[in-house]
Simulated assay, not measured.
Amino acid sequence: MKSFIVSIGICAIWLIALLPLSIAHKLGAFIGWILWITNSKKRKISEVNLRLCFPDYSDDEINRIVKKSLKALGKTYTEMGMSWMWPIPKVHKLITHIEGEEYLQQALDENNGIILIAPHLGNWEILNHFFRTYLFMTVMYKTAKIPKLDKFIFDTRKRVDVGLVPADREGVMSLYKILENKGVVAVLPDQQPRIKSGVFAPFFGQKALTGKLIGEMASTTPAYLLCCYAKRMSDGRYSVVLKPANDLVRDPDPAIAATALNKSIEQCILDCPEQYQWSYKRFRTQPETNINFYQ
Rank of each mutant, 00 (worst) to 15 (best):
residue 5 I to H: 03
residue 10 I to G: 01
residue 16 I to H: 00
residue 20 P to K: 08
residue 24 A to Y: 07
residue 25 H to Y: 07
residue 27 L to N: 00
residue 35 L to T: 01
residue 38 T to I: 00
residue 39 N to G: 15
residue 44 K to C: 12
residue 47 E to H: 13
residue 56 D to N: 15
residue 59 D to R: 09
residue 62 I to L: 05
residue 65 I to H: 04
residue 76 T to F: 11
residue 80 M to T: 15
residue 84 W to T: 06
residue 86 W to L: 07
residue 87 P to D: 11
residue 103 Y to I: 09
residue 106 Q to H: 15
residue 108 L to R: 11
residue 112 N to Q: 13
residue 112 N to M: 11
residue 113 G to T: 04
residue 113 G to W: 02
residue 114 I to V: 13
residue 115 I to L: 02
residue 121 L to V: 01
residue 127 L to H: 04
residue 127 L to I: 12
residue 129 H to R: 04
residue 130 F to W: 11
residue 131 F to M: 15
residue 132 R to T: 14
residue 135 L to G: 03
residue 136 F to K: 06
residue 136 F to L: 13
residue 142 K to S: 12
residue 144 A to P: 15
residue 145 K to D: 15
residue 147 P to S: 12
residue 148 K to A: 08
residue 149 L to D: 01
residue 153 I to W: 06
residue 155 D to K: 13
residue 158 K to T: 10
residue 159 R to W: 00
residue 161 D to K: 10
residue 165 V to G: 01
residue 174 S to N: 13
residue 174 S to K: 15
residue 175 L to K: 10
residue 179 L to D: 01
residue 181 N to M: 12
residue 181 N to V: 05
residue 182 K to Q: 10
residue 185 V to P: 02
residue 188 L to M: 13
residue 192 Q to V: 14
residue 192 Q to M: 12
residue 195 I to N: 14
residue 197 S to K: 08
residue 199 V to H: 03
residue 201 A to D: 04
residue 209 L to V: 02
residue 209 L to T: 06
residue 214 I to Q: 02
residue 223 A to H: 01
residue 228 C to D: 02
residue 228 C to L: 04
residue 231 K to E: 10
residue 232 R to V: 05
residue 233 M to Q: 13
residue 236 G to L: 02
residue 237 R to H: 14
residue 238 Y to V: 01
residue 241 V to T: 12
residue 241 V to G: 00
residue 246 N to E: 11
residue 254 P to Y: 09
residue 256 I to L: 12
residue 266 E to W: 07
residue 270 L to S: 04
residue 273 P to W: 10
residue 274 E to P: 08
residue 278 W to G: 01
residue 280 Y to A: 03
residue 281 K to Y: 12
residue 281 K to R: 14
residue 282 R to W: 00
residue 282 R to T: 09
residue 284 R to W: 13
residue 284 R to L: 12
residue 287 P to H: 06
residue 288 E to Y: 09
residue 295 Q to M: 09
residue 295 Q to K: 14
residue 295 Q to P: 02
